[in-house]
Amino acid sequence: MRLSFLEPLYKQPGPYASVYLDTSRHSAIDDPDAAVDLSRRHLRNALASEGADQASITAAADAVGGDMDIPGVHGQAVFTAHGRLALLDELPTPPAHDTAHFGTLPDTMPLIVQHSPEIPYVAVHVHYGGRHSTDATGTVRIEAEIGVWPLTKVTPGHRLNEEIPVTDWLNAAKVLGGELEGHARRINAEEVVVAGDVWARGILVRRLPAPLRGRVTTVEGAGESQPRRALLEHRLESLFSGRMAEHDRSLLAGFLAQRARDGASAEGLAEAVSALQRGQVKALFLNNHPESPLRLWIGPEPSQLALTEQELRSYGIQDIREERADAALTRALVDTRAELVVVPEQQLRLHDGVGVLLRYADPTPRT
Rank of each mutant, 00 (worst) to 15 (best):
R2V: 08
S4N: 14
F5P: 11
E7D: 10
L9S: 10
Q12I: 04
G14W: 03
G14T: 00
P15T: 03
P15I: 05
Y16R: 01
V19E: 05
L21W: 09
L21A: 13
D22N: 14
H26P: 08
V36E: 10
D37A: 15
R41Q: 15
R41C: 06
N45V: 11
A46M: 14
S49C: 02
A52R: 02
S56G: 05
G65F: 04
G65H: 04
G72M: 09
G72S: 07
G72Y: 01
G72C: 07
F79D: 04
L87D: 04
P95I: 07
H97P: 06
D98C: 06
A100Y: 02
H101W: 09
F102S: 04
T104W: 15
T104H: 15
L105A: 14
Q114G: 09
P117L: 02
V122L: 12
A123R: 03
V124K: 03
H127F: 10
Y128F: 12
D135C: 09
A136Q: 13
V140N: 03
A144P: 10
R159M: 02
N161H: 10
E163R: 14
E163L: 12
P165I: 08
A172L: 10
A184G: 01
R185G: 08
R186M: 06
N188L: 14
D197K: 05
I203V: 14
L212E: 00
R213C: 05
R213P: 06
T217C: 04
T217K: 07
S225P: 11
Q226S: 15
R229V: 02
L231S: 06
L232Y: 11
L236C: 10
L236P: 02
E237H: 09
G242L: 05
R243M: 08
M244Q: 11
A245C: 13
H247A: 14
D248R: 01
S250P: 00
L251R: 03
L251T: 04
L251E: 01
L252K: 09
L256I: 08
A257C: 00
D262A: 12
S265N: 06
E271F: 08
E271T: 08
V281W: 02
N287W: 00
P293R: 14
L294S: 11
Q304G: 12
L305E: 09
I320C: 03
R321A: 15
D326A: 01
T330K: 01
T330L: 07
A332E: 01
V334P: 01
T336C: 11
A338N: 08
V343R: 00
P344V: 14
E345I: 13
L348Q: 13
V354I: 11
R359V: 06
D362Q: 12
T364D: 12
T367V: 13
